[in-house]
Write a protein that binds this DNA or RNA. Structure first.
Length: 356
DNA sequence: CCGATTTGACCAAT
DNA sequence: ATTGGTCAAATCGG
């Protein structure tokens, strides 16, 4: 699974750093050409996040990143124990603003130390984190970004105490590539413009990023149905001038402000952003129970061709949101990964050529 | 025709 | 017993 003698924790660390570098690189490039501040900011966010994660991995618990200057109001909430606890009053917002802890994946109480195999399949043991994405109801969905991951909705459920139903999605490549990433999208009762996207597990599929399909922005959630109709009949690509928006792959609460529809350079992330854990996924994930239905999916066509179909329903927003969040979610954290248990040698150094 | 979504039923956890 | 999560048949849509 992992190359050479590298523990995958180390690889994880390196990956994070690499990402940071990559994004930084893009940022610099981006700044040269465009005046789009927003986009730049989102990139900055990603950079920070990557580094924070790296520090986390190093078991460094200091106050990490301080909010960026005029930060694009980015805030991610760590999933509180129960996602569904959003009942009535207590809006699940426990804005543990991420300042100090990057997307601190909440390792959903790993009861028993089960074999990695089960770990991946038992949602209980999957790392989980929640991101809140705010949508500008007026402008409609502004940042229909697609992180490249394709999700397949497999259920919807009314949640006690919640006004809006919760949607369940799983990676399209679950069966073809044993990618067990799933997510749940729940609209906040209090603030309908906020969607909470809870991720569980991270992608082990090797497809899905790169592709920069821009999801046509639906309008306000309320109009879902209408939209659905409109789209289905005529254009399914209602391209508002600027939408590609940040390819924000980070799970964060994107504030309306930043989502401002400034056009942005539809940059595509380099291969570095591919699911890096496709390696070990193979070793940990068991041969998945063959599901009669979805076996014949051609991952390539979908992921790269951007065959993303945009169904505009509750899920649209959901999907869109997903885009922003899932993408970079540290791929290496999905397995039972206990930071505590591992101590990385501080002076652990990687040779330049290591990455390649 | 194929793949995605919908939606009620079923299952598991609490 | 209740509720959240998943399954899977039916249905939709390109």
């Amino acid at each position: 699974m992992e190359g050479g003698g590298w523990s995958w924790e180390q690889r994880a660390l390196v990956n994070e750093l690499i990402q940071g570098m990559e994004v930084a690189r893009q940022l610099s490039f981006h700044l040269k050409g465009t005046p789009s501040v927003e986009n730049a900011e989102s990139l900055v966010q990603r950079i920070l996040s990557s580094y924070e994660k790296a520090l986390l991995i190093l078991n460094w618990s200091g106050p990490v990143g301080q909010q960026p200057p005029q930060a694009a109001a980015v805030t991610a909430t760590v999933a509180a124990a129960a996602t569904g606890s959003g009942s009535g009053s207590g809006v699940p917002e426990s804005p543990l603003s991420m300042n100090g802890s990057p997307r601190s994946e909440d390792f959903d109480g790993i009861k028993d130390n089960q074999a990695p195999i089960d770990a991946c399949k038992k949602r209980k043991t999957m790392p989980r984190w929640t991101d809140q994405v705010r949508v500008n109801s007026e402008n409609g969905l502004e940042g229909p970004i697609d992180d490249g991951y394709s999700w397949r909705k497999y259920g919807q459920k009314d949640i006690l105490g919640a006004k809006y139903p919760r949607s369940y999605y799983r990676c399209t490549y679950r069966n073809t590539q044993n990618c067990w990433a799933i997510k749940q999208v729940q609209r906040s009762d209090e603030d309908p413009t906020i969607f909470e996207v809870t991720y569980r597990g991270t992608h082990s599929c090797s497809f899905g990023h790169q592709q920069t399909v821009v999801t046509p922005p639906p309008a306000s959630p309320e109009k879902q149905e209408q939209i659905k109709h409109n789209f289905s009949s005529s254009n399914q690509q209602q391209p508002p001038p600027g939408e590609a928006l940040l390819n924000l792959q980070k799970g964060l609460k994107v504030d309306t402000q930043d989502l401002a529809k400034r056009e942005t350079v539809p940059f595509t992330f380099p291969s570095t952003y591919e699911c890096q854990n496709s390696n070990f996924s193979q070793s940990f994930l068991s041969p998945a129970t063959p599901e009669p239905n979805y076996n014949h999916v051609s991952p390539f066509v979908n992921s790269f061709g951007g065959t993303h179909t945009f169904q505009h329903s509750d899920s649209d927003l959901a999907e869109i949101l997903s885009a922003q969040t899932s993408a970079t979610s540290s791929p290496m954290l999905d397995l039972d990964f206990h930071l505590e248990s591992f101590e990385l040698v501080p002076n652990f150094s990687y040779a330049p050529g290591f990455f390649s």
